[in-house]
Design a protein around this nucleic acid. Structure first.
Lengths: 128, 128
DNA sequence: TTTTTTATGTAAGAAAACCTAACGTTAGTT
DNA sequence: AACTAACGTTAGGTTTTCTTACATAAAAAA
């Protein structure tokens, strides 16, 4: 009967997530509104975030810094969670959309002199 | 400037800690009152717990189940955080106290048929 | 260059969560 | 019988979070 804490367990209130990600509450809610994250809710309707949610938010932040817009990030997420291309279900991403995303990526890839391209890696927050 | 999340970082509100430990808010506050834990506080004075705090609470729960009282647990904690016996600073634990603690331990050690004697191990909550 | 859209800021009012303080309770101890 | 330890419970107040709505700057589109 012992439940288990995982990276998917809703543990953190929005105030802590704000600290961890340096995002405002408005931003976090906006990203949820656009279905980039789906934080759990407490009984009283308060958002409760998992470590994975924080990971995703850090990733979103990184992508936004790279000039990719929310629509683009949404597609990228979709591509990752459902990367199998079945012939029964045709892809919802048009060629033009995909090309636009990639073009944005390339155009902005060296706009800033940043280090690695690891996005949304929560592990960098952990010491031990 | 990147801050880091550690096991000592205050992340969790009391409601989540209640779920993780299956303790009531009253119990948790009571243990703090008796200095078994020292959770951080938010700007607005709300308790914020670290993973280490949760660990400690699980340990406290285990000890209480074993029949050790709060005073005893407090001593045990003190013995662990300051286990060096300097001749300059004499121990504050009397022999009678120590014997009482050990006697309680022995008397209750097989009162229930439980498995290992690992106390307060948060790691058992983590899957990956 | 206007117009629209995107990604936010900000404010208001309500509700949930948490706080301290205080008194009640129950099982053990003295 | 009286006391203590370890809570439960209630009350009133404060903090945090919620939704909704309107404002805005910069970028994109027309």
């Amino acid at each position: 009967m012992t439940h288990r804490v995982r990276r998917t367990m809703p543990l953190l209130p929005i105030s802590i997530v704000m600290q961890l990600t340096e995002l405002t509450a408005r931003q976090i809610r906006y990203y949820e509104e656009h279905e980039l994250i789906q934080p759990a809710r407490s009984e009283g309707n308060k958002r409760m975030f998992s470590l994975n949610d924080v990971d995703t938010l850090l990733e979103i932040k990184d992508f936004l810094d790279q000039g990719i817009n929310i629509a683009g990030i949404k597609k990228i997420h979709a591509l990752r969670t459902q990367p199998k291309i079945e012939k029964t279900a045709p892809q919802t991403i048009s060629d033009t959309e995909l090309r636009q995303i990639l073009r944005d990526e390339i155009l902005n890839s060296n706009a800033f002199d940043r280090g690695g391209i690891r996005q949304g890696d929560l592990s960098r927050f952990f010491k031990k």
